[in-house]
Design a protein around this nucleic acid. Sequence first.
DNA 1: AATTGACGCAACCGCCCGACA
DNA 2: GTGTCGGGCGGTTGCGTCAAT
Length: 329
Amino acid sequence: MGRPPCCDKIGVKKGPWTPEEDIILVSYIQEHGPGNWRAVPTNTGLLRCSKSCRLRWTNYLRPGIKRGNFTEHEEKMIIHLQALLGNRWAAIASYLPQRTDNDIKNFWNTHLKKKLKKQQGNDEQNQEGSSDSQSIPKGQWERRLQTDIHMAKQALCEALSLDKWNTNLLDSKPFPVTLSETKPIQTSTYASSTENIARLLQNWTKKSPNSSQAGSSQSTTQTSFNNPSIGTSSSPSEGTISATTPEGFDSFMGFSSSNSDVSQSEGEPKVNAANFIPEAGTLQGESKINLDIQMPLTLLENWLFDDASAQGGGGYIMDMSLGENADLF
DNA sequence: AATTGACGCAACCGCCCGACA
DNA sequence: GTGTCGGGCGGTTGCGTCAAT
């Protein structure tokens, strides 16, 4: 059987997070950086499992998360990447740094799965048993394997160029969300707010410098979020920057990197490519596909390119269904 | 206005893997 | 070489919201 729970269930709170808990967690991470999740509940006094803290941070509190509707552009990227990578949401998410794997997974399960099924239902030459993503064609497995091999190579490359990375990190663009950009806290829409709680917190800490939690972390508010080397420098993989990946990937994929779709719909603050922040990639896709960014055209991207060519190029990617993709192999 | 079913999302659970002693 | 631990990932569930009846 599996391992015992990461923490005893007695006294561990479950369910939705409260604003207070969020504030405590973010304050702590601002001071200490993400990582060592085991110590978070004990050090913060949060009655939460370490996993719960980590998930809350990565899926909701982490700076740079884009919420709200998926754009058509994102949707098509997800469809294609899912066809290539399968349900490896973390890997897929690394190409959409503003989205969490959980978000993508949910979006896939609630929207795209149905959409594709419907699409294939309309397809006259629909073949039995091959429609769902669960049954992965043999060729796709081979590609997966090749992806993994490639990732391993990339990891080696990265390991050999760590110093360069760290230098780049320190020179990298600071966390783009400034206090002037933040909006007033809207407590009434807390849970579903499109505002990132971290932004709220930055605003909050500014507004209430006397608060014990915020006060102690205020001096680190900017530095922690601005400087990715703080608190995360212990992990080499967390020092990677994926900021250029989506752009390069987008442009490669034929999407306009200046596409306004990249920015947010439904009233969210616009986030352009320049607003990709190191943490967004470092804390999300982590060590795997982020490695690809060192090479403008990775093997994976070459595959995509091959696929595009095989399909006659143009906007095929946009319209490709899973079944069609399966036929490629 | 009340009920009900569908939908979407946040969070949890179980398993796996790598690091380390 | 082995066991333990911490972290990550994918699948699943629970609950709130909203539209249809």
